[in-house]
Design a protein around this nucleic acid. Structure first.
Lengths: 135, 135
DNA sequence: TAATCTATTGCAACATTGATGCATTTGTTA
DNA sequence: TAACAAATGCATCAATGTTGCAATAGATTA
């Protein structure tokens, strides 16, 4: 699962910005913020370029946006690529990590009559194992 | 459940801004955005005043913030006041309404060992009854 | 390999939102 | 009603989202 192959598969031009973003995301287990990704890249890209690269990757469904808060957004590979099922995300309020809860399937509440769901965004906030006080 | 009583109960000063915000929220079944609330008020308040009023109401757990998206936040009365149980929210992608799904309890996925949850934020996006194409 | 076309980049610019300091005003309590 | 503490309005700044446009880079074809 290499960045270049993904970009080619989704018919996007191979630019170093997109390639860099993808390789950082692929090499991390947890979802990362725009700044966390930027910090891992060697080259500098304009803020707009970065912004549009994410927009493109999301529109192509390569990358998935996880909204922790209106002030904190993280990015991870989309289920289309990872072949994961829909899942909830865990946000650690101490270390601010965002993890995919892949092992537990996403529970779906019943909707009122006539309602139609397209998308489920479930974020569970708390403390991860590392940040939980030891017993 | 009157604004003045709520403010008094939570030991907050009765200011017209807080009172106005609360009365708008109380009189609507759906969660409203800051602008939707502002539009319902007769008096004008400075942006900062509005911002701080929400901050105070949230800190006192009178109002609950529902983050639909990093660009769209809505507000509703907190469960402490409505005596509702924890519930998911439905966001209609067509009319942008946010509704509480009170009737269905919030399903809680199992967490990995050592993880501790404080808060569950479940937003289901789709089309509400009014906006769903008729069969 | 070079020429060409199109998409992407970087920059300027603007809107929105979150946030803080401070002097003035208001609500509450004695 | 006086006095104090809290809230307001204004100025200001940071971060983020967004668009237009000229310059540049990637991909395709001759």
């Amino acid at each position: 699962m290499k960045p270049i192959e993904i970009l080619h598969q989704y018919q996007l031009k191979r630019t170093s910005c997109r390639e860099g973003i993808l390789s950082v995301i692929i090499n991390h287990n947890e979802a990362l913020s725009e700044n966390e990704i930027r910090d891992q890249l060697e080259s500098h890209y304009d803020r707009t370029t970065f912004y549009r690269a994410f927009k493109t990757l999301i529109e192509s469904k390569i990358v998935h946006k996880i909204v922790v808060d209106n002030q904190l957004v993280k990015y991870a590979l989309d289920n289309h690529i990872t072949q994961k099922k829909e899942h909830a995300h865990f946000y650690c309020e101490a270390c601010h990590a965002v993890l995919c809860l892949e092992t537990t399937p996403l529970p779906k509440p019943n909707l009122p009559n006539g309602f139609q769901a397209n998308n489920f965004e479930y974020v569970i906030k708390g403390l991860c194992k590392k940040c939980s006080p030891k017993a």
